[in-house]
């Protein structure tokens, strides 16, 4: 349970979220909305009985229409456990009934139901150590951002971390300014972007999909035994995992979260 006050670094989060209890729906209220990219928004939610979570976990949300029609989806938690409000970052998906409502219609003050946190497998906390190597495509960056934000809040024991992030264009890079600023302030954090469809003038970074060579250049070597997390559309995750195993990384240290064909 998070203890407010002086000893923020002593916040005990490891046991509270992975507990034995039935998942219950609770009422979430939107307190703030942030536009991240033309297709992506973050929603900061207040939940009355939230007991904490581990970076990497997700929630289920449920929308109920006036006529009783319901739709349910899963979204990764973008905020670290140290934050008071719960942040979900959502990408507007073509033909996505729920994501379109969230992006196009939701306003501050609106309510829907949330249950969670869910999924103790795809998690990382500073106590798990590093180095931490993260690979994301598109909205796959969301659970990894929770990990980096958590790492950033923990001043002690900052393991070296790397985020390799594939986006279509610069304007599609979610959390771009925050990632730049985190990397700028922390010499042990490296953010490597690759822009696969469109690059701004003067772009000297990668401009292709993540392949074996790119991973070999960007990631720490296998001998360093990094904790690896890969998240994004299923084909991306499958390719990257396969490349990593071929490069000699231990498959037991690679954790994946496939978002399915539409990328979550």
């Amino acid at each position: 349970m998070a203890t407010p006050g002086k000893n923020r670094d002593m916040t005990v989060i490891e046991t509270s979220a992975v507990s034995v209890r039935r998942l219950e729906w609770q009422r979430a209220e939107v307190r703030k909305i942030m536009v991240e990219t033309p297709r992506v928004k973050s929603f900061l939610l207040h939940l009355p009985s939230w007991l904490g979570h581990l970076p990497g976990q997700h929630v289920d949300i449920r929308l109920t229409a006036e006529d009783g029609y319901q739709a349910q989806r899963s979204y990764s938690i973008a905020s670290p456990p140290e934050d008071k409000l719960l942040t979900l970052t959502v990408e507007r998906v073509e033909n996505g009934e729920v994501s379109q409502y969230l992006i196009d219609d939701v306003r501050v003050g609106d309510q829907f139901e949330v249950r969670g946190p869910i999924g103790g497998y795809f998690v990382w906390t500073t106590s798990m150590g590093g180095p931490l190597c993260l690979a994301a495509a598109g909205s796959g960056v969301v659970p990894l951002m929770a990990m980096l934000r958590h790492r950033c809040r923990r001043r002690k024991n900052r393991a070296p971390a790397l985020l390799l992030y594939s986006s279509r264009s610069l304007e599609d890079v979610i959390y771009r300014d925050e990632l730049d600023s985190m990397a700028h302030r922390d010499s042990d954090l490296h953010v490597v972007n690759t822009l696969t469809r469109q690059q701004p003038e003067g772009w000297i970074g990668y401009r292709r999909r993540i392949d074996k060579e790119l991973l070999a250049e960007a990631f720490v070597p296998p001998e360093w035994n990094p904790n690896i997390f890969v998240c994004g559309p299923t084909p991306f995750v499958e390719n990257v995992s396969r490349f990593l195993v071929e490069l000699g990384y231990d498959s037991l240290t690679i954790k994946t979260e496939r978002f399915g064909p539409s990328g979550g």
Binding site: R27, L63, T64, A65, E66, D67, Y69, A71, E97, Q100, Y101, D105, V106, R107, D110, Q111, F112, E113
Partner: peptide, 12 residues
């Protein structure tokens, strides 16, 4: 008990 999500309706 269940909060209604304002403006949400089935697009289907």
């Amino acid at each position: 008990k269940t909060p209604i999500s304002r403006g949400f309706r089935s697009r289907r």
